[in-house]
Nucleic acid binder design. Structure first.
Length: 640
RNA sequence: GCCCAUAUAGCUCAGUCGGUAGAGCACUCCCUUGGUAAGGGAGAGGUCACUGGUUCGAAUCCAGUUAUGGGCACCA
């Protein structure tokens, strides 16, 4: 006789096992109509699921947060049903809900085309209109295997085959279509609604393994309401509008070309932005007690063998064979070089620890061709890399200081929303448990000091030590993993670094790896997208463009430019024989943060007419006022 | 690396059935000195990504290569 406790604390007593449908109906007819599923003691179940024992039950409706996943999962099923109806020769595999949508992987000789996608989507809408009842069935495992194999669904059979013997498997039937699925599902296809859209077709490996055959994946998005669907599609458009590959061309920042895939040709504007970032990081880390070094671009194979890179990452390294037969490798990381500086530098004892070594090190990694993506994934990039050599006791304080510095640099750059991921000891590792305890504890204290929430990734640490990863959320809600703090017990020892401790004996230092922006190339891309090209003045590759309205103002324009330059402001001058609106349009498109329009009036009065990017407002200021205003904004690193 | 798609002027893109290329913007010159997102005119600019094949003839059809795009896998 189940006693059902509802979320508001009220209790309903039933005198027989009761289904979610019945509970919802018992509460009210409106709810019965809106009900999509139930949550029983925290687990989502089908609405038709029967409850025999006392339980806490919540009715899930369209508005519930948990409804999203159900909806999307159902959308995947409806997609599969549509595909099977239209292309019966296709085999179905798996189709889960994912962030923002769903996908389904199919095995079919012929590739799906964009036209197929339209047909499929139309059929999906028909299936929703049919409002097919979705029914859960429990089958005997072997019977299910036989069933799918007879039907030609080898993939499904294989999935069930990997389910332990004797276990019951659940199938869901909707109309003529039946699919293996853990569930839960909506009560009928009509409940899905029409706020979905198929987005793209792509390849995906069977079971995510690149040794397996390639399937065809159809991606879609699904939402509770048309309004939310629109909002999401709008976000996608917005992302496209902000695409750094597009803006990078419009702003004349950089280009790529075939002869050097994955390597950036920085144009003067891009180089300026790049160097402003470096300048800022340099300043901030000098305050924090780092020293800057520079280590060789190529080093002999033997060093990479000693560091372990040769064994683990050889495939990702560029190498160069010289006339004398030596094999050199371009550095994929800076750490081995920094250990050399530790070994050959001034540090001989614990008295001069910690040693904080930083380098804007350019590294080369032979990334798989399919991974390359604008500035976001390249083969040659610059890291704001640093390594802190310290004693075991110093790990905590150093890690804490790193977190502070990293977060503060993110704030400088306009990122307030930051998350941390904490990855602790993996099964395969070096170092004693004692040391791991200490290192993990140190990182935990460091996170706590930031006051930020963090997610815990158990067992995901590197073999040489635990790590923190810093994730930035940008202006349109996308996450970018940038910074990292890693404890390393391995490399200093491998490369023979040591210091004399208080006890007069030799000890191996601990090494902390740190990157803040990570790849500066990539961070540049993130910044462009975050600000949609409207970079803050202090980072912008140009500050002001001085445009004349008539040639009578040419001399004044030159004077204004000179005054700007004298105060460190980057000022271009546009004296062309074009209308002011033409010039405004052109420089606005190129994302000039400030446009100064100078005509006869300004020349006579010693003023400038100032217009900021993204605004139509014009302010007339004296030259000094304008210079002071903008210079203060640059020095103060003001973000919009 | 894998699947699918794409590659034509600096940029964005047309180019039918195979008959050796076109537009808009940008660029150069001329006219216009115009007050805040395109004033007018003229001109120059192309090994149709590359290599090979089919064909009397290839931007167009076929194959391979390279790069790019969307994913997958990878990201030490």
């Amino acid at each position: 006789m189940p006693r059902i406790t509802l979320p508001d604390g009220s209790v309903r007593q039933f005198d027989a096992p009761v289904s979610g449908t019945e509970i919802a109906a018992d509460i009210g007819s409106g709810l019965a109509k809106a009900a999509l599923a139930i949550q029983v003691d925290g687990d989502l179940r089908d609405l038709a699921g029967v409850i025999e024992q006392d339980a806490n039950v919540a009715i899930i409706t369209r508005e519930s947060e948990d409804a999203l996943e159900l909806l999307r999962h159902d959308a995947a099923h409806v997609l599969a049903e549509a595909v099977k109806e239209l292309y019966p020769e296709t085999q179905v595999t798996i189709g889960p809900a994912i962030e923002n949508g769903f996908y389904y992987d199919f095995a079919r000789e012929q590739p799906f085309t964009p036209e197929d996608l339209e047909r499929i989507e139309t059929r999906m809408r028909e299936i929703v209109d049919r409002n097919e009842t979705i029914v859960r069935e429990e089958w005997d495992r072997d019977e299910a295997i036989r069933f799918f194999r007879d039907w030609g669904e080898e993939y499904k059979a294989e999935i069930i085959d990997s389910i332990p013997q004797g276990e019951v498997v659940s199938l869901y039937r909707q109309g003529d279509w039946i699919d293996l699925c853990r569930g839960p599902h909506l009560p009928s296809t009509g409940k899905l609604g029409k706020a979905f859209k198929l987005l793209r077709i792509s390849g995906a490996y069977w079971r995510g393994n690149s040794d397996n055959e390639m399937l065809q994946r159809i991606y879609g998005t699904a939402w509770p309401s048309e309004k939310e669907l629109k909002a999401y599609l709008h976000m996608l458009e917005e992302a496209q509008r902000r695409d750094h590959r597009r803006l990078g061309v419009e702003m004349d920042l950089y280009h790529f070309q075939e002869e050097s895939p994955g390597a950036v040709f920085w144009h003067p504007g891009g180089q300026r932005l790049f160097q402003r970032l470096i300048r800022h990081i340099r300043e901030r880390q000098e305050e924090a007690g780092y020293v800057e070094v520079d280590t060789p671009q190529i080093m002999d194979r033997s060093l990479w063998e000693a560091s372990g890179h040769w064994e683990a990452f050889r495939e990702n390294m560029f190498t160069s064979q010289t006339e004398d037969g030596r094999l050199f490798a371009l550095k994929p990381m800076n750490c081995p070089g920094h250990v050399q500086i530790f070994k050959n530098g001034p540090v001989k004892s614990h008295r001069s620890l910690p040693l904080r070594i930083a380098e804007f090190g350019k590294v080369h990694r032979y990334e798989p061709s399919g991974a390359l993506h604008g500035l976001m994934r390249v083969r040659a990039f610059t890291q704001d890399d640093a390594h802190v050599f310290c004693t075991d006791e110093q790990i905590t304080q150093e890690a804490t200081a790193m977190c502070d510095l990293i977060l503060s640099v993110y704030r400088d750059c306009g990122f307030e929303d930051v998350r941390i991921k904490f990855a602790d000891r993996p099964p395969l590792r070096v170092g004693t448990d004692d040391i791991w305890d200490k290192a993990e504890q140190a990182l935990r204290i460091a996170i706590d000091s930031t006051g930020l929430r963090y997610t815990h990734n158990p067992g995901e640490g590197a073999f040489y030590g635990p790590k923190l990863e810093f994730v930035l959320r940008d202006a349109i809600g996308r996450d970018w993993q940038c910074g990292t703090v890693q404890v390393d017990f391995n490399l200093p020892q491998r490369l023979g670094a040591s210091y004399v401790g208080e006890d007069g004996a030799r000890h191996t230092p601990v090494m902390l790896h740190r990157a803040m922006l990570g790849s500066i190339e990539r961070f540049t891309g993130i910044l462009i997208e975050h600000f949609a090209g409207h970079l803050p003045l202090w980072l912008s590759p140009k500050h002001a463009v001085i445009c004349t309205i008539t040639s009578a103002a040419d001399d004044w324009a030159r004077e204004v430019q000179a005054s700007f330059r004298a105060r460190g402001l980057l000022a271009e001058i546009d004296l062309r024989n074009e209308k002011i609106s033409y010039k405004v349009r052109e420089h606005s498109k190129a994302k000039a943060p400030v446009i100064l329009a100078l005509g006869k009036q300004e020349a006579d009065m010693g003023t400038v007419s100032m217009r900021r990017l993204g605004s139509k407002e014009q302010r007339v200021l004296t030259l000094d006022e304008a210079v002071d205003l903008l210079a203060a904004e640059v020095v103060g690193r003001v973000n919009p």
